[in-house]
Design a protein around this nucleic acid. Structure first.
Lengths: 329, 329
DNA sequence: TTGTAGGCGTTATCAC
DNA sequence: GTGATAACGCCTACAA
C-alpha cells in the first residue's frame, strides 16, 4: 500500500506538504495541492488509519450502543447510523448491553479510549452516570434526554397526543397502553403523554411492561377485555399485531368493538397488512441524525441544536374508529 | 493513559520485555512476567490499539457484512458476532450492502485494508469474485458455500427434509414454498431440498420471491388457495404468520384444512403465539461461529473445519397436521 | 508557502 | 531471558 511518503516523492514535495495538502488544503498553494492530489489518485493512496490515530488520537471509529438487537426497533437505527458514518468516512462499531446498566457502564468505559465517540441508544444508566461519562467523551443520547447532553429522540409523545385527540373525538374514554420493555425512559414519557392528553375524564390503564413481541400482544388480550377499555395503544406494532390477531380469534371486531393503534410502525416487518393505525417514523433517521450530531461534537463544532426531535406522523388506518355505542367510551 | 513504557519502568524491566510479557508470555521468565502483570494492574494499562496496529498490521477490527437489517434474520447474527468478537477482544463493524453485489464489492474493497477480516453474510457476489477476494483477505462466508472458502451455514435443508418427511407421513402431496428475497443462494438450496424430498409423486409450488414480511405472507394467501396445496412452507416466520392470519380471516382452519410451517423461527419476535410449526435455530450462533472461525483464520490457525453446519431443529406445533381427507394430499 | 525534525506507543531484530 | 534500537506511517511545531 502506498504511503504518504510515496505520494510526496511522486508530487515532488515534502511529506509534510503532502500531509497538509490532504488534511488542511487551505494551507497549501493550489498548484502544489493539485500535484499532490494527482499523485494520490495515481498511487491509489489511502491514509493508514492506525498511523493517523497514533498521532492525532482520532481513531475514526464510532460506537453505537444498543440495549438489544432482539427488539426490531433497534436494527434500522444501526443501519441509518452506519450509512451516515460511512459517508463521513468513519467506521461504526456496535455493542449490545442486553439492557444491563452495569454492562453498559463497563462497555462504555472499556471503549472510551478506543473510539472517537458514542451514540448511546435508550441508555440504561442513571442521568448522573451518563452526564459524567458524556462530559469526558463525545456522546449523543438517543431515545432519552439527559440534561446537559446532546440527544436525539423520536417525538412519539406528540404523536400520541394527536392520536388521543382522535380517539377522544371518537368518544373513546377508557384506553389501555401496552407498555414496552421495562424501565425505558421513553416509555415513561409516552405514558405521561397519554395520561395527560386523555384529560380529567379519561382513564388510562397501563398493561405491562411487556416484551415487544407478537406473543405478548396476543397474551395481553384477555386482560384488555377484562379491563373493558374501548381502545388500545401498543408500545410497538408486533404487540399491536398480536392483539389484533388474538381479538380476531376471540371474535372481537376492530374497530367496531375495540380500536387498536401502535406507537410505532415497524414498516420493514411489513406488519401493516391488517392496516393497523400507528405512528409512523423511520428509526434509521434516528441513527443517522445521532451520528451527524456526534460527528459535529467530535470535530469540535458545537452542533446547531443539541436536542433533536424526529417527528412521528399519525397514520390512521382501519383498526381505529368509534367505540360501540353505549360502551365504555 | 499509561503507556507500556510506564509499565516497564514500574516493573523495572525494559519496554521490550514488558511487551513480550504481554504478547508472548512464554518468552519471559515467570517472575518477570509476574512483576509486569502486576504493574499493568496497578497502572490500569491497556495497549494502544493504534500503536499496535501500526507495527503489527492487525487493527483488531472485524467487519460483518449483511445484505440488510430490515430482514429480522440478520440482527441476531450481528449480536452473536459482536459478543464473540468482544470476548476475543476485538471490535466489530457492521456494513450493510442493501443487497447490491456492486456495493458489496466496493465495501469489501474499501475496508479490506482497514480490518483484520470479514464475515460476509449471504453474499451477493459471484463465486469467483468472492473466491478471489477471500484468498487475499481472511473471510468467512455465512449462509452460503463458496468452494475454497471457509463457510458457516444453518442446516435448514436437512431440517426441511425432515419436515417434508412428516408432511408426507401425514399424506400431504402438494406443497407450496413461499420463497424469500430473490436470488439467495440459501433459498435455492431450500427449494432443492424440498423438491427432492417430496419425491416423484409430490408437487412443489414455489411462490415468490417475496419480501420476508407479514404483509407479503397475508397477500400470498389467495395464490396459496388457488394452487390447492395442502401444506405451506414459508421462508420465514413473519411470512408464515401473515399466512396463518389471513387464512383465519378467510375462514380456513389450520391445520385441519391446510398446514403451515416456517423454515425459520424468529423467536425474538415472539411470533410463536399461534404456535406455528417451524425449524428452530438461533441466528446468533451463526454469527458467533462465523467470528470464531474468522479469528482462527486471522491468527493463522487453519480452522478445524472450514465448513461449519449449524443444525436446525424441527419444532412441530399446532399449524401442521393431516390434510383434509380426499383433499389434494 | 514549504521543509526539517521529533515524536506518537508498540513490536521486532538484533546482540548480549 | 533481557535490553538497546530501529522501524511502523503520519502529524505538527518550528524554522526557513
Amino acid at each position: 500500500m502506498a504511503r504518504l511518503a510515496d505520494v510526496a516523492r511522486a508530487a515532488g514535495v515534502s511529506v509534510a506538504t503532502a500531509s497538509r495538502a490532504l488534511s488542511r488544503p487551505d494551507l497549501v498553494a493550489s498548484a502544489t495541492r493539485l500535484r499532490v492530489l494527482e499523485a494520490v489518485q495515481q498511487l491509489g493512496f489511502r491514509v493508514n488509519p492506525a498511523a493517523r490515530a497514533l498521532t492525532s488520537g482520532k481513531t475514526g471509529l464510532l460506537a453505537v450502543c444498543v440495549p438489544t438487537l432482539a427488539n426490531p426497533f433497534f436494527a434500522p437505527i444501526i443501519a441509518g447510523a452506519q450509512q451516515t458514518a460511512e459517508a463521513a468516512d468513519r467506521h461504526l462499531t456496535v455493542v449490545v448491553t442486553e439492557g444491563s446498566a452495569r454492562r453498559e457502564g463497563e462497555v462504555l468505559g472499556r471503549l472510551a479510549s478506543q473510539v472517537d465517540g458514542f451514540v448511546i441508544v435508550a441508555p440504561q444508566g442513571s442521568d448522573t452516570a451518563l452526564l459524567e461519562f458524556g462530559t469526558s467523551t463525545p456522546a449523543v443520547i438517543a431515545e432519552r434526554v439527559v440534561p446537559g447532553l446532546a440527544s436525539v429522540v423520536i417525538d412519539t409523545p406528540t404523536g400520541l397526543r394527536e392520536l388521543v385527540g382522535v380517539l377522544r373525538a371518537d368518544s373513546h374514554r377508557r384506553v389501555a397502553y401496552l407498555s414496552g420493555p421495562g424501565g425505558s425512559w421513553m416509555d415513561r414519557l409516552r405514558r405521561a403523554a397519554l395520561r395527560e392528553s386523555l384529560g380529567e375524564d379519561g382513564e388510562l390503564t397501563v398493561i405491562g411492561p411487556l416484551p415487544p413481541t407478537f406473543r405478548a400482544g396476543a397474551e395481553a388480550v384477555s386482560e384488555i377485555l377484562d379491563r373493558r377499555v374501548s381502545a388500545v395503544v401498543a408500545y410497538n406494532s408486533l404487540l399491536a399485531l398480536g392483539v389484533v390477531f388474538q381479538l380476531h380469534l376471540a371474535g372481537v371486531r376492530t374497530p367496531e368493538q375495540i380500536s387498536v393503534a401502535s406507537a410505532d410502525d415497524l414498516a420493514a416487518l411489513g406488519l401493516g397488512a391488517p392496516e393497523i393505525s400507528a405512528l409512523h417514523f423511520d428509526p434509521a433517521h434516528l441513527g443517522a441524525a445521532a451520528v451527524r450530531v456526534l460527528i459535529q461534537l467530535i470535530i469540535g463544532h458545537e452542533p446547531a441544536s443539541s436536542h433533536t426531535r424526529i417527528p412521528a406522523h399519525l397514520q390512521l388506518r382501519s383498526t381505529t374508529g368509534r367505540p360501540p355505542a353505549g360502551g365504555s367510551g
